[in-house]
Design a protein around this nucleic acid. Sequence first.
DNA 1: CGGTTGTTTGAACTGATTCAATCTGTGTGG
DNA 2: CCACACAGATTGAATCAGTTCAAACAACCG
Lengths: 242, 242
Amino acid sequence: MSKRLRDVPKPSISLVDGLSRFGLGKRDAAEISKLPSRRLTINARQVLREPDTGSSEAFFVVSGLLAKYRIVSAGRRQILGLRYAGEGILPGENPPRNGLQAVMPTEVLVMQKDIFDDALRAYPGFAVFCLRGTQRHAAIDYEWLLSCGSRDGLSRVAHLLCETTVRTGVGTDEAQFVNPLTQLQMAEITGQTSINVNRMFAEIERLGLIERRGQRIHVNCWTELRRLAGFTGSYLLTSAGQ
Amino acid sequence: MSKRLRDVPKPSISLVDGLSRFGLGKRDAAEISKLPSRRLTINARQVLREPDTGSSEAFFVVSGLLAKYRIVSAGRRQILGLRYAGEGILPGENPPRNGLQAVMPTEVLVMQKDIFDDALRAYPGFAVFCLRGTQRHAAIDYEWLLSCGSRDGLSRVAHLLCETTVRTGVGTDEAQFVNPLTQLQMAEITGQTSINVNRMFAEIERLGLIERRGQRIHVNCWTELRRLAGFTGSYLLTSAGQ
DNA sequence: CGGTTGTTTGAACTGATTCAATCTGTGTGG
DNA sequence: CCACACAGATTGAATCAGTTCAAACAACCG
């Protein structure tokens, strides 16, 4: 819906490529990708899994963008994580607590938990790979916690912009990217109201750090934006550990 | 310093027990615990590792309590995680970004990263074990993010109290435990000032949900405290997945 | 063109912070 | 055993960042 969804480039990535790009050996990657899974195509805004329902499954984002969320009291929602193409969501030992919703039209591969668990045991390299991926996302979560806990509204929005710049994969040289998130979603990530996100967003533009044309964002001064956000991006590249 | 540190019971747990208690097979646990590591005893408040310094290592908390933290601008600190006895901190692929500090007198086992990484590859069960542990802590981080992002001051403090009740391992039946955290530390966890934590803490007591005698906390109404906090504790027991 | 979603702006309000002072329990040294 | 130092807890008053409520506006879609 809205131009956002048409404008956004939607790079597609196969399971094999996704696995090996993030460090799994070619051989294991090939084996894993041959395991049974089903492919789903979901619309923007569509809920893939409600919070506290459904069975545990493994998800792999082929294209698009998935948000993990929880509903707090009074309709207030918190987005807990984002999964871009090539990233995944792993089942744990407990039933899933978090909901999953597509931010834009998204294709996912879904694998049964027991098949996933068997693969974990059968392919030692896969277990380490999953550990690394989980550590990488944990590092992102730490940044989000840091934002919500210790940064003011302006820095939070700036930080999310920095993260989005890097994670959408355009590279910071290009300094131009399409923001896939609405201001309400940015608010649900940074723990604010969309009204305040709107003001902080405008303030960042007023400061001359970025320019906006629709969802397209041009970063005028990456260094200054980073400084404002307190952003250091190394954690995004590989697993950052705890 | 202060009675806090003397009062707190400090259960000690061996590496083998810690590993097998959280689900690693006896055989693997025995092998892992034979690997070379050094034992450190640190005082309350002592910094074990400064943020953004030091080499990657694996830590295992034998007794006491460790806080993982980061310093934001202007001396503001954010605590990103707690590690009770039996829990660990794993090295990732990037240099460590977070500092480590003892909340109370603490004993840790420290293992070199390369030895840890070798073990990960040598013992497939160990890799899965580490994945489960990381998922469990990620689930706790989600709760903290939810708190900082979407709950008001009162609920945040109440939620931390609930979590501490469960994690200190007294069981909710006993309804009595020693809070190892100062109000400043609770503030650094919940993204508030210690002044506000103090007021919310007092408010929870005024509501009759708890009673305080020094650091000792008696929970009068677990159900109501949980409700106020929006706390559901299942995620703490085992790995909750993403 | 009408309907819907998202963005923007204004004004009033409030939860939490900041600044400042006081109080309390504990450990230390004489 | 007391005087003192010190960290932590508590309280009050002023201030402010961010929310809430409300309304207008813009872009896109069928």
